[in-house]
Design a protein around this nucleic acid. Structure first.
Lengths: 217, 217
DNA sequence: TAGATTGTTAATCGATTAACAATC
DNA sequence: TAGATTGTTAATCGATTAACAATC
């Protein structure tokens, strides 16, 4: 456990790290052994200095002239994000999005392992989705406590989001990945990350709108 | 068409606008008529000045003492994001996530209207998902051109993302909402917005990891 | 060696926050 | 009026980018 593990990286850096990772996987598949910040920057349209600063947070040292060993860099980034360890998670809300999340095998590669899903729909309770059992939401707090679950994914309709989030907190969950388009009011020690699709949609909507107004090309 | 419609807002502002909108809907339901930047800021844990600056972009003027009329503010934000107009869109990739998107009626409220879905899977081609027909991806360019589709949603596996994105561009699509975890290389005049879940996951993963390391509470 | 790249310090840029007169 | 809020200018903060010596 080195000192740097205690250093907190800025959010923009955290958001870029997975992008590096995806590129590194691709480069490794292509048989490359080393990679420079220059190359990463060019591929991802970033500044090389920025790439180096980001990478510094992961505590890996590069070599002048050659850059960074790809394998080491992958390991370092994964360790930094704790994606090399599996985090057991609960998911609440088995609608369209929730089911999609459960079916998304890729999350396992990112250290996220769904162990149970929760819903209020009696039709769904008792069934399985991709081998994950769907349980009544009432059972969430007790089970979370007993299984020491710290990570919750919230994919319920917005009007229930606050209520279900509080149930998660009651179960000792410390990090909530919130897909509902609303602001959760929770104790300060609970980490909330809003994965709001509407935010992303707003950016592209406005940009396309501007393009149309301006008639640029 | 006022001058301000030509003013480009910073991305952080664009990302906050939908959050205001969700709050405003909730307040309107609660019977409120006016809202102050102070109130919005308190609810969303932001700075009141920041809220006022964001709102300024939408070209609405508030009144000292009372704030902004909620109804007007909603209309102004929706107009700014062009969510009051319906944008016809194609979606490519009808897997878990793509199907979830199609089933998500809420997008209609955000001006996004799926008119056709595309896939390579013969089992899926010819079927419908929530009344949206699934067609062969080969038909995308011609149809997009004829229907003048400008908006494409990309929910294909990452290894096909670049290829399918190019097909979209061939069809005259100018804005691509990319859900594949990879960097698309496209002409500069094509707007690409990466809705990468892994970026959001990285933020919460690291924060939870830090919490565990530090043992804070 | 020559040349490309790292690691790091300094400069720049842009967003956030503070301050405050004008307003209802 | 008194008091809360807007609109706006100035100050601060933090992230990005530039510059460059050290290194292989």
């Amino acid at each position: 456990m080195t000192a740097s593990q205690f250093k907190s990286a800025p959010e923009p850096t955290l958001r870029r790290l997975p992008r590096y990772l995806h590129l590194l996987f691709r480069l490794r598949e292509g048989g490359l052994e080393d990679v420079s910040s220059t190359l990463i920057a060019r591929e991802l349209k970033l500044d090389p200095t920025q790439v180096r600063k980001d990478i510094e947070y992961t505590d890996i040292v590069g070599r002048p002239k050659t850059g960074y060993p790809i394998e080491d860099l992958i390991i370092a980034i994964e360790a930094f994000l704790n994606w090399n360890n599996t985090e057991d998670a609960f998911i609440a809300g088995v609608g369209n999005l929730g089911s999609a999340m459960l079916g998304y095998q890729r999350f396992k590669k990112y250290g996220l392992n769904f162990v149970a899903a929760f819903d209020t729909d009696k039709q769904k309770i008792g069934t399985q989705i991709d081998t994950i059992p769907v349980l009544s939401i009432e059972k969430l707090p007790d089970l979370a406590n007993r299984m020491k679950i710290k990570f919750g994914v919230l994919t319920v309709p917005p009007q229930y989001a606050q209520f279900v989030a509080e149930i998660m907190v009651e179960g000792g969950i410390k990090a909530i990945w919130n897909f509902a388009p609303c602001q959760l009011k929770l104790p300060d020690d609970v980490i909330v990350e809003n994965a709001q699709l509407t935010q992303s949609l707003a950016v592209i909507s406005r940009k396309l709108h501007e393009k149309k107004i301006l008639g640029s090309d």
